[in-house]
Design a protein around this nucleic acid. Structure first.
Length: 717
DNA sequence: ATAGGGTTAG
């Protein structure tokens, strides 16, 4: 390239320009380095081109962005508003929000474009509140918002808790005369829909004199997001009566509005929309989610070019069911095709590794993430945190968290729920306090995870505080939070409060019903549990496997053998569900507790599975109550072979021998337990003491909030 | 501007 020297900078500028136009960009930084080797001094145009090219090169190496930044600082050109703004946008696109915000802070002279870029950057990267605060700061510094500002900001206000802020900004928009812009109107409609204020969304939509396809799509999506699927369909028909042609986004919105996917698929074929790769991709997602792997696979193969989103949908359908082999196969496929995985794909892969038996595969994916640089993404780090928490590897969880450069709310949620899952709810509560010190405001997921931690600890006082927080902050007590609240109150012994929460939910989802049924079942309220099952059926809901686990648990705890048999039959015959190992363990527990050992053993021999320690454990425990030493010894051998370190085995055997006065055997079993290192303390019952009085005789009286049956007990010492 | 893949409970 000796001629380059004579042509100077302009040669490199044309090189970058042509790369930009033909989109055949190699590393723009490479061109930049060559230019420096020729002792040329880059100008603002050079930087502007390098940054633009970098943006379309979708450069994943944040390091390269930093290098451009460094050169800019050295050359002094950083003071140009345009260049700094371009660099800021580049950082935003890379998800380096911190760097972008530092740039804005240091700009001696800011312009609206820079504010807009950072506001929408915060918004797109999950820093919703930051977007809002930055917007306020912008107003305080005397800048007037533009349409771009509002359009970038509104998506981050689309949350129930921020509905009043959204209204204020709507007002600001009206004052600035921006609300007549159709982009602003559509963004507003979508915001109100996400805040669950459908009435406001409808008014905005009706107001529009000339409704574009985008406007119709927005409103169809609005109904879909709020569960009004029929309304979404009706609006779609109206749209077609108004002779507006549906486009690919319409079809995708209908698909996510739970419309019958085969109908929509037909419509897409008839109108020709189906050739759109995004539509095929959405169809792949829908079929994959419904578990129809064959259709999703066929559609995926019909794509003109396999794309990552579609493959990710397929991966996640396998991942959800914990099918590691298929996840690995899909991953291999992506590598054969030279596909570059992104953070979301990586997260769904990690999601598939749930079983600690596959720790080595999980660690291998972690290694892949480090090599490709994907681990820097907070999404991937969150995925890793969840994965290691399933392996109970709390050290890995904490070290991943502390290494994260940016910690948005979702990372705090990941580590909090990770701690709870790994049985470290006390750490979760501590992290929650730290999270608040860092200025984060908990959302529904934070609260739901913490509530489940409270259930684990029996920490009723804190659970009540969280309940108060939910009520004060208008968080919706449905699905997630409602279920978690009911679970917490039941496990902390406040059955009556749990019942009140359940009654306050207008349309409980299946998970809420399941939690309630299970809760009543294990607390010994068999009639209430079964009544709730009947009510669920009356409302036309279809029970699932978990429902029947709850129903069976209720039968076990009340000794209702015939009822249990009947529900097992309903499950297998009326609903055609294949019983899982857990269901079988329930049946074995039910039969053996009633002393029906022959029937229980027959049941085990007819099972489709090899019995696991839960099945044998249930049987052995029943042997204790019925003093069945011979059968007990037979089962103990089975259990010993499955897991000889299981402390429960020795405790049960010791109790069994003791019930018959066989003290030599008791001593022998206890010695065996010591030899294997077991301590026999595998379970702890725990309730929170709500009041504590010192009595005259120096003993203490403590009371436990146990709902209807408040219990009192005294103890000395 | 509207839409498609991921994270939460049972």
């Amino acid at each position: 390239m000796s001629f380059a020297k004579s042509v100077g900078l302009s040669f490199f500028h044309s090189l970058l320009k042509s790369q930009l136009e033909t989109k055949t960009v190699n590393s723009p930084l490479l061109v930049f380095r060559q230019l420096l080797q020729f002792n040329l001094k880059p100008s603002d145009l050079t930087f502007s081109l390098v940054i633009k090219a970098s943006a379309s090169y979708s450069l994943k190496q944040r390091l390269e962005a930093n290098q451009i930044h460094t050169h800019l600082l050295k050359s002094g050109i950083i003071h140009s508003v345009y260049i700094t703004t371009a660099l800021l946008s580049l950082y935003v696109n890379l998800g380096c929000i911190k760097n972008a915000s530092f740039l804005l802070e240091d700009m001696p002279e800011r312009d609206v474009v820079a504010w807009n870029a950072l506001i929408s950057g915060y918004s797109k990267n999950g820093y919703d509140l930051y977007a809002f605060y930055l917007f306020m700061e912008m107003l305080r510094e005397g800048f007037s918002p533009q349409t771009t500002t509002l359009v970038g900001l509104f998506p981050s206000i689309g949350r129930l808790e921020l509905v009043s802020q959204g209204k204020s900004i709507h007002g600001i928009g009206v004052k600035a005369g921006l609300d007549r812009d159709s982009k602003v109107k559509n963004a507003l409609t979508s915001m109100y829909a996400k805040c669950r204020d459908l009435a406001a969304a409808e008014i905005l939509f009706e107001e529009m004199v000339e409704k574009s396809v985008v406007a119709w799509n927005t409103m169809i999506g609005a109904y879909g997001q709020n569960g009004l699927f029929d309304e979404a369909m009706v609006l779609f028909k109206k749209m077609r009566e108004n002779t507006l042609e549906a486009n690919s986004v319409t079809v995708m919105s209908l698909l996510s509005a739970n419309a019958d996917h085969e109908t929509i698929h037909c419509f897409a074929i008839k109108t020709g929309i189906v050739i759109d790769a995004s539509v095929i991709t959405s169809l792949v997602c829908v079929y994959a989610r419904s578990g129809d792997n064959e259709s999703s696979g066929l559609l995926h193969n019909s794509l003109p070019e396999e794309n990552l989103v579609s493959l990710t949908a397929i991966i996640s359908s396998y991942a959800e069911r914990g099918n590691v082999d298929m996840v690995v196969e899909c991953f291999a496929r992506s590598q054969q095709l030279d596909m570059e995985l992104d953070a979301v794909a990586m997260v769904s892969i990690l999601h598939g590794v749930k079983n600690p038996a596959y720790t080595d595969i999980g660690v291998a994916f972690h290694g892949y993430g480090i090599k490709t640089g994907l681990c820097i993404h907070s999404l991937v780090a969150n995925g890793l945190i969840s994965m290691y928490s399933k392996f109970n590897d709390i050290e890995a969880v904490f070290s991943l968290f502390s290494e994260m450069q940016e910690k948005p709310l979702i990372s705090w949620n990941s580590i909090i729920s990770g701690c709870v899952r790994a049985g470290r709810a006390d750490d979760a509560v501590e992290l929650f306090c730290r999270m608040k010190m860092f200025g984060h405001h908990p959302d529904a997921i934070t609260i739901a995870s913490l509530l489940s931690g409270c259930s684990q600890l029996g920490y009723l006082q804190f659970g009540k505080k969280l309940h108060g927080f939910v009520l004060r902050n208008n968080l919706e007590v449905e699905d997630f939070i409602g279920t978690a609240l009911i679970d917490m109150y039941i496990k902390c012994g406040s059955i009556d409060v749990a019942e009140r929460v359940f009654k306050s939910i207008k349309e409980p989802c299946l998970a809420t019903w399941n939690t309630t049924i299970t809760g009543y079942g294990v607390c010994g309220f068999q009639n209430k549990a079964l009544a709730h099952y009947a009510e669920l059926r009356k409302r036309g809901l279809k029970p699932d496997r978990i429902t029947f686990l709850g129903v069976l648990a209720a039968c076990i705890h009340s000794g209702a053998v015939d009822e249990g048999r009947r529900y097992f039959q309903i499950m297998t015959e009326e609903f055609g569900m294949a019983p899982s190992l857990q269901h079988c363990a329930c049946m074995v527990a039910l039969l053996s507790r009633a002393g029906l050992f022959k029937e229980a053993l027959l049941f085990i021999s007819n099972m489709d599975f090899d019995p696991d320690s839960a099945v044998w454990g249930a049987l052995l425990s029943a042997c204790c109550t019925h003093q069945e030493v011979k059968l007990g010894e037979y089962i103990a051998k089975k259990l010993y072979l499955l897991d000889h370190r299981n402390g429960g085995l020795y405790v049960l055997m010791s109790n069994l021998y003791a019930s018959k006065g066989m003290w030599d055997d008791v001593a022998r079993v206890r010695q065996m337990m010591k030899d294997t290192g077991g301590d026999g303390c595998s379970g702890v019952s725990l309730l929170e003491v709500t009041s504590f009085k010192e009595m005259d005789d120096n003993s203490y009286l403590w009371e436990v909030d146990h709902g209807a049956q408040s219990c009192q007990q005294t103890f000395s010492d």
